[in-house]
Nucleic acid binder design. Sequence first.
DNA 1: ATAATATATGAATAGTTATTCATATATTGA
DNA 2: TCAATATATGAATAACTATTCATATATTAT
Lengths: 115, 115
Amino acid sequence: MNCEHEREHSAAARAAKENMPHAAEIERLAENFKTISEPSRLKILFALRHGEMCVLHIVEAVGGAQSAVSHQLRLLRASNIVKARRDGRHIVYSLADEHILAVLELACAHLKCKI
Amino acid sequence: MNCEHEREHSAAARAAKENMPHAAEIERLAENFKTISEPSRLKILFALRHGEMCVLHIVEAVGGAQSAVSHQLRLLRASNIVKARRDGRHIVYSLADEHILAVLELACAHLKCKI
DNA sequence: ATAATATATGAATAGTTATTCATATATTGA
DNA sequence: TCAATATATGAATAACTATTCATATATTAT
């Protein structure tokens, strides 16, 4: 490249290249963001703000088909965004850790929207 | 539904339903997360941690074709995740606000990965 | 053991998206 | 104005994903 900003910005470019996280970490991050980037899955997370719930209660809260919700829960679970425990014939879901809500709140702050 | 947890969890389900953010807000949120859920775009954000950069410097830092980077920058810009200003024949990009890095750091904390 | 309830899953389809290639636009210097 | 540099964009293809439908698995009560 042959850019006049060479002196000003190429140091930033070099630092950026040297400190770039490894591909595997970036892909894991991307995977996680992708998991929370679908409206139906976000709804599930907003629902679980109000406490743990079994699948049919989640279906009640977010709408849609049971099968669809189950598929989405599987993805959320695979990414460790929600956790599940069995209670009798129910599977009770809840948010996996405190980072989840914090990320949602930060994103809402960025968008200046109230949740 | 006919679930034994009716008494225990249905209050949470009702609260979840009543306090569910509007569809438009959820879609805006999802849109934003989707934008930061692709490895190539994440790389750009990690690059811009080190300061503002013009497109060719970003290309240098993250790799890939100029055209691809430009397309990705357009999406990041449309979601107000990066901002751009013209400086001569360059367009200089930077992170749009302090929430961006904060979200990345929270996500990294969740994944227990160091960035 | 059987029926009923709760949840999960495989396959198929329809919709979405990243990348590439070729080209267009915009700015500067000669 | 012309050439060179920097960035953006339209179209096409290939890869991915959400949803639906049908069905499977697991648990409990009778």
